[in-house]
Amino acid sequence: MLSSELLHIGLNHYLGLSAVIFVIGMLTVLLRRNLIVMLMGVELMLNAVNITFVAFSSFNQNMNGQVMVFFVMAIAAAEAAVGLALAVTIFKHYKEIDISAFEQLKS
């Protein structure tokens, strides 16, 4: 019984995968000091949410979730562009991209 539950890939399996990746992304943002790697953690979290959207969309036969994934992708690209521009600004002032330099952003 348990093995058939494990072998039949359902909605919960995809949600579990997305939860694991989300938490790893969250820990990347919390634990790392490098600003660029923290932005990578944000990208991981957004991708985990995208997996959730597509999984629900696929298992409910509802197209709206996939449209949301488009919007999330566009927002993620915009967020990466602004975040990296901020990283460049920080680097010009302090010659490092440690997150602790951010508290002096207002020059």
Partner: peptide, 29 residues
Amino acid sequence: VFFMLDAGFLAGVQLIVYAGAVLVLFVMV
């Protein structure tokens, strides 16, 4: 994973936008 979930178009967009564009931006910076 998107491909496994019958979202082939999104899988392609994911490859182009993330593996193609966003990550190149990261590596360039």
